[in-house]
């Protein structure tokens, strides 16, 4: 198990949600937070990482780090302007 120095401002727990639930939960949260906010998205869906990576690039946000927590992944996403 890896660890991170990153500190999330907000956590979105989407463990157990099927695609596209986790990414929709992330986007829903992104609408509500201030620029600069780091969101920790927890997902057990293996499609979440490539989808979020692509969305982050498309939307000008940044996928900072992905951690494998065994039964789920944690994706750290910084919401930009």
């Amino acid at each position: 198990m890896s660890d991170t120095q990153l500190e999330a401002d907000v956590t979105v727990n989407a463990v157990g949600s099927s695609c596209p639930g986790p990414m929709m939960d992330l986007i829903g949260k992104a609408k509500d937070v201030d620029p600069g906010t780091v969101i920790r998205l927890q997902s057990s869906n293996e499609g979440t990482e490539p989808d979020v990576a692509e969305w982050a690039e498309e939307s000008g946000n940044e996928l900072l780090e992905v951690l494998d927590r065994g039964d789920h992944w944690e994706l750290y996403v910084q919401i930009n302007d």
Partner: peptide, 10 residues
């Protein structure tokens, strides 16, 4: 549609 394809079900 919100994600990178036209529907959630692939």
């Amino acid at each position: 549609y919100p994600i990178n394809r036209a529907h959630g079900i692939e």
